[in-house]
Amino acid sequence: MDRRITGTTHVVVHLAYPSHHLRTPTYFNAYCAEHGHDAVLVPWQVAPENLAAAFEGLRRIDSLAGVIVTIPHKTSVAGLCDSLSDTAGFLGVANVARRTPDGRFHGEMFDGAGFVQGLVREGRSINGRNALLLGAGGAATGIAEALVRGGVARLAIANRSMDKAEELAVRLRSAFAGRDIVAAPADARGFDLVVNGTSLGMKAGDPLPVDPETLEPGALVAEVVMEPDVTPLLRLASKRGCGTHRGVHMITGQIELLARFLLDEPGA
Score class of each variant (00 low, 15 high):
residue 140 A to T: 13
residue 136 A to G: 11
residue 135 G to H: 02
residue 132 L to V: 06
residue 167 E to I: 00
residue 150 G to M: 11
residue 134 L to P: 06
residue 132 L to P: 04
residue 135 G to F: 07
residue 165 A to H: 13
residue 187 D to N: 11
residue 122 E to H: 05
residue 196 N to D: 09
residue 180 D to L: 13
residue 154 R to C: 07
residue 127 N to D: 14
residue 149 R to F: 03
residue 126 I to Q: 05
residue 145 E to M: 07
residue 158 A to C: 11
residue 157 I to M: 10
residue 151 G to A: 10
residue 149 R to V: 12
residue 137 G to D: 07
residue 165 A to I: 15
residue 126 I to V: 15
residue 125 S to Q: 09
residue 151 G to E: 03
residue 171 R to V: 07
residue 175 A to L: 12
residue 123 G to I: 01
residue 148 V to A: 03
residue 134 L to I: 10
residue 146 A to N: 03
residue 182 V to E: 08
residue 169 A to Q: 13
residue 157 I to F: 11
residue 131 A to P: 00
residue 152 V to A: 13
residue 152 V to W: 01
residue 192 D to V: 14
residue 160 R to I: 00
residue 164 K to R: 14
residue 151 G to C: 11
residue 137 G to T: 03
residue 192 D to N: 15
residue 176 F to L: 02
residue 130 N to M: 03
residue 121 R to D: 15
residue 166 E to I: 05
residue 189 R to T: 12
residue 167 E to H: 10
residue 166 E to N: 07
residue 182 V to S: 13
residue 152 V to G: 09
residue 139 A to M: 05
residue 150 G to T: 12
residue 163 D to G: 00
residue 197 G to M: 07
residue 195 V to L: 03
residue 165 A to G: 14
residue 154 R to L: 04
residue 127 N to F: 14
residue 191 F to R: 13
residue 182 V to T: 13
residue 142 G to E: 06
residue 153 A to S: 15
residue 123 G to W: 08
residue 143 I to W: 04
residue 174 S to I: 00
residue 142 G to K: 09
residue 143 I to Q: 04
residue 123 G to Y: 06
residue 172 L to S: 12
residue 149 R to W: 00
residue 166 E to Y: 01
residue 185 P to L: 02
residue 165 A to L: 14
residue 158 A to Y: 05
residue 169 A to H: 11
residue 142 G to Y: 06
residue 183 A to Q: 07
residue 130 N to S: 14
residue 191 F to G: 12
residue 140 A to S: 13
residue 135 G to A: 05
residue 137 G to N: 08
residue 125 S to I: 00
residue 172 L to D: 12
residue 132 L to K: 04
residue 149 R to A: 15
residue 147 L to Q: 02
residue 185 P to N: 08
residue 186 A to R: 00
residue 170 V to T: 05
residue 170 V to R: 11
residue 128 G to H: 10
residue 129 R to M: 06
residue 122 E to K: 03
residue 132 L to F: 06
residue 182 V to H: 11
residue 174 S to G: 12
residue 153 A to K: 10
